[in-house]
């Protein structure tokens, strides 16, 4: 054997971890940058909450919906 296996693999480790971190670090910075650019120039349009929908629903419908939500939540908690 001309080279030491462990020696070579230690070098691989240094190179590998270095590249992985450099890559991910650059990725982090790019992500931050694109978030900044996008939030500045292409802000997400606020979806207007339609108030008309709630006014048309009668109280009966509202009550039934609440009951359904409560039932779903209790079912979910039971499963846990």
């Amino acid at each position: 054997m001309e080279y030491s296996l462990v020696g070579e693999s230690l070098k691989f480790m240094i190179l590998g971890m270095l590249i992985v971190f450099v890559f991910l670090y650059v990725l982090v910075e790019v992500m931050k940058l694109q978030a900044k650019i996008i939030s500045k120039y292409f802000p997400e349009k606020e979806i207007p909450v339609s108030t008309s929908a709630s006014s048309t629903t009668d109280t009966d419908e509202e009550a039934r919906r609440t009951a359904a939500i409560i039932a779903a939540v209790t079912e979910f908690r039971k499963k846990k």
């Binding site: 971890m17 992985v20 971190f21 890559f23 991910l24 670090y25 990725l27 982090v28 992500m31 931050k32 978030a35």
Partner: peptide, 8 residues
């Protein structure tokens, strides 16, 4: 984004 470093 910085949690990506944990994946590294």
């Amino acid at each position: 984004p910085k949690t990506a470093l944990l994946g590294g």
